[in-house]
Amino acid sequence: MGIFRKLIPPPEWRLPVIILMGAMTGLTLYALIESKAVSYLSDNPKTCVNCHVMTPQYVTWQKSSHREWASCNDCHVPQDNVLKKYLFKAKDGLYHASVFTTRGEPEVIRMREASVEVVQNNCIRCHEDQVTDAKLSASVEDHFENRTSRKCWECHQEVPHGSVHSLSSVKYYGKIPEEHQETVPEWLSKYLKEFDNKKEK
């Protein structure tokens, strides 16, 4: 009980503290609602386009063979246990949010080292039968461990995101399909309309 008494501010500070705590609570709730924070707990791929910079990746995934079998989280988040999955999502999400908020995203988005390892492990998890040769594993030493010495995308570069790797090279530039319009921010839609109008003149 003595600890709680120490936390209670003196009478002359109570009103400012209550106002400050109310403001902080309001700002926190606003940030959570505006960032659609709850959506990040799901596996819905549309969550990834809450940040418009991921629109090229989302649209190219939509056109890929992986769309029927794997969501963004199936490839980009660890799948070996739930705790690790959400810890990775939180850590990666905070990094992405800070980069996006400060407008520090690069023109060409590349995976960080931790993400490279996760994606490689998930490729193997789904395609283990294709990368393990029973004959070689019986006769070649360490075949099972060395079968992934190269990254899968060194050969399979266009799976599942095609050749689009930069924010300014979206294949559907100016003609983003109707079903994906909700992923395009208002300022970009306005810019694209103005751009189309200038082209017509």
Rank of each mutant, 00 (worst) to 15 (best):
K171P: 00
C123V: 10
A70S: 05
C123F: 12
A37M: 13
V49C: 11
S137A: 06
M54L: 05
V119L: 05
I19E: 12
V159H: 05
V59E: 00
Q57L: 10
T28N: 14
K171V: 10
S163M: 08
A90N: 03
A97Y: 12
D43G: 04
Y58E: 03
A138M: 10
D196K: 15
D74C: 03
V108I: 14
V184Q: 10
V118T: 15
S169I: 01
G174T: 11
Y86D: 04
E141S: 04
M54A: 04
L27R: 12
L27Q: 14
R103N: 09
K171Y: 07
F100K: 07
C152I: 02
L32H: 13
V159K: 06
P11I: 11
D196H: 13
T60M: 09
R125E: 01
Y173Q: 04
T183R: 02
W187H: 15
V184R: 08
K175I: 09
E145L: 06
S163H: 07
F4P: 10
Y58W: 01
K89A: 07
T101K: 09
R110G: 09
I33A: 14
T55G: 02
E128L: 07
L41A: 15
G174A: 09
D196C: 12
L32Q: 14
R125C: 00
T148H: 02
K193R: 10
Q79F: 00
R147P: 08
Y95K: 09
N81S: 09
K175L: 09
P11R: 05
V49G: 11
N73K: 05
W61S: 03
S137V: 05
F4E: 15
V38Y: 05
N50I: 11
N73W: 00
C51A: 08
G104E: 09
M24E: 15
C152K: 00
H96E: 11
S39H: 04
V108R: 14
A31W: 07
C72S: 04
I18F: 15
A37Q: 06
P160M: 01
V116G: 00
